[in-house]
Amino acid sequence: MTDAMHLDWQPVSSPARAPLNGHYVRLEPLQLAAHGDDLWLALQGPQSDPRLWDYLPYGPFPERTGFDAWLAANAASSDPLFFAVLERASQRAVGLLSFLRIAPRDGCIEIGHIAFGRAMQRSPASTEAVYLLAELAMATLGYRRLEWKCNALNARSMRAAERLGFVYEGTFRQHMVIKGRNRDSAWFSILDREWPTLAKAYERWLAVDNFDADGKQLSQLKTLHG
């Protein structure tokens, strides 16, 4: 290792099981008792997105018993560390997401297991939920690398990663077998040196004055971060 490659690096802390507050959403550590009813309605109810489970390694859940068992296991886990996403206006849980592959020694962490109800999709709420976790990891805790991975066939997730400022790094071929099917995994990342500029773009996009009276965005996030 050359001097130029040497890092005076110290391991960082794991994220705490604690709430995070934004303007549009509040993230709370996932709890079956507190969030189960709302999440069942948002993710499996009659108005839920039928495509939600297509690329996730679990679901859909035709019965509440199976859904509750899955939710309880997620709530008990520390890696992945799950958060319920509560809409501030209604105080209802409308989705969930997690940190995973948490590596404080290397300063690497991933955002994943994203399951947003239809009401969250293509909304400030979904963007702010990711922003709150990213800001915690990169600015507050000091991680060096934030990752996003998805099935390379999942066009929606690929578009979301790029819109959110993650940089595509390549595809791991035949990476996993999910629900009996091959998964090639697309890898994206944000590095610590990239986050301050990107965070400002998120904050400008999430500002109340970036939306008109009908809630339509005036500036696109991708335009703001370039």
Rank of each mutant, 00 (worst) to 15 (best):
E110P: 10
E203P: 05
V208G: 04
R144L: 08
Q44W: 03
Y143W: 07
E135F: 00
D79T: 03
E110N: 09
H113K: 00
P50L: 04
Y168G: 07
R26V: 10
A199F: 08
H35V: 09
C108P: 00
F166A: 08
G117Q: 01
A134Y: 08
K216S: 11
L32N: 00
P19I: 04
L20K: 01
P15H: 05
A213G: 15
P80R: 02
V94E: 08
G180I: 08
E128C: 11
M120Q: 06
A129T: 05
Q47A: 14
M5K: 05
A125Q: 15
L224Q: 09
A72F: 02
L81C: 01
H35P: 14
D54H: 08
I111D: 14
I114T: 13
R101V: 00
R88D: 12
Q174A: 14
A84I: 02
R51Y: 12
A69V: 06
L153H: 04
Q220K: 13
E28G: 07
S13H: 06
N210H: 08
L43R: 02
F116T: 04
M138P: 12
L41V: 04
R105P: 02
P60C: 06
W9S: 14
Q10T: 11
D68Q: 04
N210V: 12
A119S: 14
N21S: 14
L39E: 07
A115N: 08
S78F: 04
K179D: 03
E147G: 03
V85E: 04
G170A: 08
N154V: 00
R181S: 13
L198A: 06
A73Y: 00
H6G: 01
A186E: 10
E194K: 01
E169A: 05
T65E: 15
F83G: 07
K179Y: 09
E135G: 01
A34E: 13
I178M: 13
D8F: 04
P57G: 07
R101N: 14
S90Y: 09
A160D: 02
R193Q: 13
L32T: 15
S77I: 02
W195D: 15
A207R: 07
Q10D: 09
M120K: 11
R204N: 06
A33I: 09
L7M: 13
V177Y: 00
V94W: 04
L132A: 07
V167K: 07
L43A: 10
N182S: 15
R101L: 08
A18Y: 01
A207M: 10
L30Q: 11
D38L: 09
A73W: 02
